[in-house]
Design a protein around this nucleic acid. Sequence first.
DNA 1: AATAGTCTTGTGATTAAGTCACAGACCTCC
DNA 2: GGAGGTCTGTGACTTAATCACAAGACTATT
Lengths: 222, 222
Amino acid sequence: MDKSDILQKYCFYAHAPLAARQKFDRAATQVELNPGDFYFHEGDACTHVALVGNGSIRVYKAGESGREITLYHVRAGETCILTASCVLAGMSYPAAAVAESQTDAVIFPAPVFRDWVASMATVRDFVFQTLATRMADLMALVEEITFNKMDKRLAEYLCQRFENEGRPITVLHVTHEQIATELGSAREVVSRLLKEFERLGAIEVARGRIRLRNEATLRQFL
Amino acid sequence: MDKSDILQKYCFYAHAPLAARQKFDRAATQVELNPGDFYFHEGDACTHVALVGNGSIRVYKAGESGREITLYHVRAGETCILTASCVLAGMSYPAAAVAESQTDAVIFPAPVFRDWVASMATVRDFVFQTLATRMADLMALVEEITFNKMDKRLAEYLCQRFENEGRPITVLHVTHEQIATELGSAREVVSRLLKEFERLGAIEVARGRIRLRNEATLRQFL
DNA sequence: AATAGTCTTGTGATTAAGTCACAGACCTCC
DNA sequence: GGAGGTCTGTGACTTAATCACAAGACTATT
């Protein structure tokens, strides 16, 4: 996957006149991340903006106890808007980001990006759109953490994963630990709840694998 | 407090040439909110952007159980960036906002504001600055909720309130209930912790009032 | 195929938080 | 000085997080 393949996924690029597209191409640097590679650490200065073309990046906060919570994922066609907002406000990253899978992306230097936001309405709209969405997502996350019980949150997570963005699947390859870091909980808590779901016949758990048995039962927790 | 007094608190206005200032003045509508007045409800469509000149607005999420959690406060010289981000992205409010005290503000119609963000670098920078800050605040909030215990969070809250933005005070007028909605906890939990702090000699609690007795003791929880 | 070593899951005990159901205490306003 | 509202206190119970291990499952190696 090369630079323009990646950029092609972004409307402000795809619909831009040729001259503008060439400008983007020239400024873009392609990067490739392997699973586990950090895209940035908390507190890093912000020098680039990234557009993801492929794969997935997990943006998260880590507590001193070793627990973590995922804030959101950046997937194909999305910007890590955190980088954008930091670039535009000149602040350092308030969270960390690691690649979850093999990821292709392009990055732009901060000044170039700032310039485009100033001069191109399409880029600006794209940025505002994503910023507002992430902001709303974060608020929803706060709400979720504060008011919902773990069983409900876990069931929600599982349903979403089984749904797989419209292409339903019945088996997840994920460990209890991974789920815990996703939800900001502890592994033991997740294990016990999964066991409970299994007891009710909703799922079937095995090492590193969860199979959906009865979606309706699972949905009763929502 | 009239329109230009309020606008004067914003750098993009204060440093603007006369012609631009007059343009702002013409587009601005002054609004006044009494304590308890809603500025907007969750789900409301977003038609205006507000700049606060005086007083304070609380932006919060409410759970079905009746519990609430404050996301942030908008005080003098700040924008309710949520309105701005919603205006710019064309979405509805993901939270609710209510005046905590007598509040003076000016509002601009969405299209006018969008236009300014497009045409004036100063306004745009201001918006990005605030958006990025709020975003970082929200992430910090998620971290706080997820990893910190209530006693620490409560102590933090109290210290901040006693500090009073540089002008320290020793008495707070606040109910346990209000603190609970601020922290997203339950009143009973706050009451018990306050009692514990009192037992240790850090504070003295009375109906609707908390007096600081020994800051060092309180700070041991941080 | 036995072994060692890591990764993953299970379990019990303890503490922290949230929930529920009341009981008083305090305050304000007739 | 009652009446009614607003605050706070308390006990019992449930849910989560934490801690300390035990045990199972998979991998690589010999």
